[in-house]
Design a protein around this nucleic acid. Structure first.
Lengths: 342, 342
DNA sequence: CCGATGGGAATTCCCCCTTT
DNA sequence: AAAGGGGGAATTCCCATCGG
């Protein structure tokens, strides 16, 4: 009784840059698939249950499938790949009994096909993929509708086969493993502040508008999709308001900090260190940027507020007591509300 | 003796958005070619010398050529167009003698073909264009190398033919007219400031950095390709320094205005109106944006400089005399130099 | 030198808005 | 509602750079 089993030892990177056929022409690879663990790790499988008493050779085939299990038009290319599929084989010896065999996808890249326009290349690729006849979940590719939206996500599926003592190749129905979803790297949320203006704020200013320029186009165009904070050491957090967005630019308002308890440690410093933090609420990805608050006006150098050891609360705030941790949130208005975390 | 002549009465718009075949499928037009005079004007020709005594009918054919006169793969489509060429015909009567006949290209669009990639569509289009056999300058299209760079510029060329009294169609060698170059609209320099931050400066500030966000990607990536000015009424101009550029963002420095003569008219106003002007030195295209200089500090409201009727020159400037028209240029350093135009 | 990578330019096409 | 205009997304490809 053959009881091979196959499992994913290392998942592939969540995001991948697929390469086009034109990019890997001439013996090149490019777009190598890496494992999730590190920069140049690789996807690895574990094969168990190999026994020469019942099987001479184990073959593991790997191919692309959609997240739903339908054969996928993108294909594998590189070491141990043939006809767009990964093909691994190994003769089993007595030494393998009871051991785990590790299969490593080295130098394997995932190749995409044009799926827009009217070239029909996607259709041809679907046909090719069907012709491979590697379909562990037995799903009809013709029932799957590949669109530019969903075609850029796939899984890899692997199945073990063995050559029995009679020389017959037999699929192991139980020895199937699929990876988690690999998505086009373009789907990855990028949020990185490249520059902020002004680079220094004035601690006693009433309200300050800041511009944040991002390295990449912002993932959403709606200001409500983001939260903005000013983080101080000592866990003080001031919520800012996102005013508007441009393609690569965000405008936020820092509320008046008059009356808020600024960090103890920096009371004597000429300027207070803090950082601006923008959170994409949808993906939960955040960007940070260092920022400073000066005790003197950055424009005219005047010191309208006392700049002694510790500035007293501004009278306009009614002299609220200083708290250890304060969250000042600016709802939708100009007013400032001070909350105290327990 | 037939002596037809043909001339361009109205040149086409310098920039044009060519449409792809896929965009004009289904009886649509799109990408209409307009004349240079106005929004919906059209390209017009003048035909002279038509005389029924020698010709029964005049035919005018128009087609695309490269700026050098070689047949061009893009083609004409729409009213009076056939096989990619404009084809106009008119029977000549006695009333036409001595008159100018105006030919108007209404509802004619210019269609482009994919010229990148490996689809070979450009080659096919070149073949098609050659097959039309409309080649007034008799240039071999095979000698022309169309690349993605040069293919997006073309001229239209028109030639008159006539049907003589024997019913024979004869080309008029002298009656040829070509338009000026029509370029892809993407070649048009766009420079428009969408927002500026801060929106208001402080007249007594030492030096102010400003961010300008443009509606489109900047045409160059090198700061030296631009000049920046602050324009006041009364022709006062202050040169600013372009610090750096991002894709859609420019950072400039307004030099200290202390000691410069600000406009008379606005001496009493709370804030001084002016405008920021960015000039693309290569194309000479400029963008303007309104700006204000406040007499009180925009951050802390203080009035470190006297805010009386007319502020005296700051001592740091040695009390230079105020001039009617002053150009302050900021070369590459922090220092300010005051020039006086005669 | 070559192959791989990442960035971004160039190209093509989709689709919404405006106008008729 | 349909056509045309315009913006910009999606796709493909090119290339400078990096590391072996």
């Amino acid at each position: 009784m053959v009881s091979l089993s196959l499992s994913i030892l290392e998942q592939p990177a969540r995001y991948h840059r697929f390469r086009y056929e034109t990019e890997i022409a001439g013996g090149k690879l490019g777009g190598l698939l890496y494992g999730r663990s590190g920069s140049k790790s690789c996807v690895r499988l574990t094969l168990r249950g190999a026994d020469p008493a019942v099987c001479r050779t184990v073959i593991v085939i790997g191919g692309t499938i959609s997240p739903d299990g339908y054969p996928h038009p993108f294909y594998m290319h590189g070491d141990s790949c043939e006809s767009g599929a990964f093909q691994w084989r190994r003769d089993i010896t007595a030494a393998d009994v009871g051991k785990e065999i590790e299969i490593c996808l080295e130098k394997v890249s995932l190749v995409c096909v044009p799926h827009g326009g009217s070239s029909g290349k996607l259709q041809k690729a679907i046909k090719r993929r069907e012709d491979i006849q590697f379909n562990p979940f037995n799903k009809k590719i013709s029932e799957m509708k590949y669109t530019s939206r969903n075609v850029r996500e796939l899984r890899l599926v692997f199945q073990a086969y063995y050559i029995d003592l009679n020389g017959k190749t037999v699929p192991c129905k139980g020895a199937i493993a699929q990876t988690e979803v690999i998505s086009d790297i373009k789907f990855q949320t990028k949020l990185e502040i490249e520059e902020a203006h002004p680079s220094e704020g004035y601690v006693h200013a009433k309200q300050q508008e800041m511009w944040l320029y991002f390295k990449d186009a912002l993932p959403h165009t709606d200001a409500s999709q983001y939260n903005a904070f000013l983080d101080f050491e000592g866990e003080q957090i001031v919520q800012c308001k996102v005013l508007w967005l441009k393609k690569q630019l965000m405008s936020i308002t820092i509320p008046s900090l008059r009356g808020s308890a600024l960090p103890e440690g920096s009371a004597t410093a000429d300027r207070i260190e803090c950082s601006i933090r923008i959170v994409d609420l949808k993906s939960d990805v955040a960007a940070e940027h260092e920022f400073y608050l000066s005790r003197s006006c950055t424009l005219c150098n005047s010191l309208t507020e006392p700049a002694h050891k510790r500035s007293r609360c501004s009278p306009s705030n009614g002299g609220q007591p200083e708290t250890e941790i304060a969250v000042i949130s600016l709802p939708a208005s100009d007013s400032v509300e001070v909350k105290t975390e327990n």
